[in-house]
Amino acid sequence: MTRKPAEPIYDILREKIISGDFVPGAPLRQDEIARNHGTSKIPVREALLKLEVDGFVTFRKNRGAIVRELSTAEILHLTDIRVALECRAIELAMPNMIEADFETAEHILEDYARQKQTASWSALNIQFHRTLYEPSGNAVLLQLIADIQQRIGPNLRQFVTEISGLERPHSEHRLILAACREGDVPAAVALLRDHILTTKKEIAARLRRHEESVS
């Protein structure tokens, strides 16, 4: 099936937003994008409109499109969704976990403890959680979790990592992994829920202080 001209442009722009090449608030100028892709502005506008529907782009009156910035409420709501999805994922995954899964998770935590950069912590955090959820075998659930991470974006994920620091998440990760090794599903789910909700509280407090400082 032949793809519409807007589709590859949509794919490229979406990937740049997800990867952080285009940061929140960055302008997306139709004429510049069209020139870079050797096309007219019509498919570019179609791609931007689809990105708006998917929540990646916002159109400002008389000012064009920008990369969408998440509000405080949206960030906290996405964290609530993480709780529901990830607790279900680990619940489904634990009966299928084997020693190789535990060893992979342990190696990630060892690497995590050695790193000094928050960007590395953020990437390893995602790897650790993904390792625990993959044995669920539920591809749809895993994609939903990945979609949440993409929606949050690398810049916000690093911001969250800076708020949480190293010690608290690392300690909680070890407790979660220990519960998984013991096959204690209720404990693992409870620990994971508390782990994510503690992060939510830290985010809410930091964003509240930020909003107060600029008001």
Rank of each mutant, 00 (worst) to 15 (best):
Q158F: 10
E99W: 00
A73M: 12
L144W: 10
L124Q: 00
A65L: 09
D80N: 12
K116Y: 08
Y133K: 04
H107F: 12
P154V: 06
A188S: 08
R88L: 13
A123P: 09
M97A: 07
Q143P: 07
W121H: 06
T72H: 12
R82G: 05
H173N: 14
S171K: 12
A113P: 06
L177V: 07
A73Y: 10
R174D: 00
A146W: 00
R157V: 08
P154I: 09
A188Y: 02
K116D: 15
N96R: 02
I98V: 07
Q158A: 10
R168G: 08
V185C: 09
P135G: 03
R157E: 04
G165W: 13
L177K: 00
C87I: 04
I90L: 12
L76Y: 12
L142Y: 07
E69G: 02
Q150F: 15
L92G: 00
G64N: 03
E167P: 11
E99N: 07
R168S: 13
Q143T: 09
L175F: 14
T131G: 06
L141Q: 04
T131S: 13
A146H: 00
P95M: 04
H170E: 15
T118H: 10
L78D: 07
A139N: 03
P95H: 06
I66D: 01
K116H: 10
N155A: 12
G153H: 01
A89C: 09
I98M: 04
P154W: 08
E103M: 14
F159K: 10
S122D: 11
M97D: 00
S164N: 14
E99R: 07
A178G: 10
N125I: 08
G153T: 07
Q117K: 11
P169S: 14
D184E: 14
D111M: 12
F159Q: 10
Q117G: 07
E106T: 13
N125E: 12
S136M: 04
E162H: 14
L142K: 02
G137M: 01
R114A: 11
M94P: 02
S71A: 11
I148T: 07
D101F: 15
A100L: 11
S164C: 15
T161D: 13
Q117F: 14
A123D: 05
R181I: 04
S71H: 03
G183C: 05
E167I: 15
P186D: 04
E110W: 04
A178W: 04
V160Y: 11
I176G: 05
E74M: 08
E162T: 14
R130P: 05
C87H: 02
I176F: 13
D184S: 10
L78I: 11
C87N: 04
I163P: 06
A179M: 08
G137Y: 06
L85N: 00
Q150A: 05
I108L: 10
D147G: 06
T104H: 13
Q117C: 12
G183Q: 04
R130E: 11
A188L: 03
Q150T: 04
D101Y: 15
T72S: 14
S71I: 07
V67C: 01
W121A: 01
E106F: 11
P154D: 13
P95G: 02
P186Y: 13
P135Y: 03
L70W: 09
F128Q: 01
A119T: 15
P95Q: 08
N155C: 11
E103L: 15
A113V: 05
A93W: 01
A84S: 14
P186G: 05
I163A: 13
F159Y: 12
R68M: 06
E182G: 10
A187L: 14
L142N: 01
E162V: 13
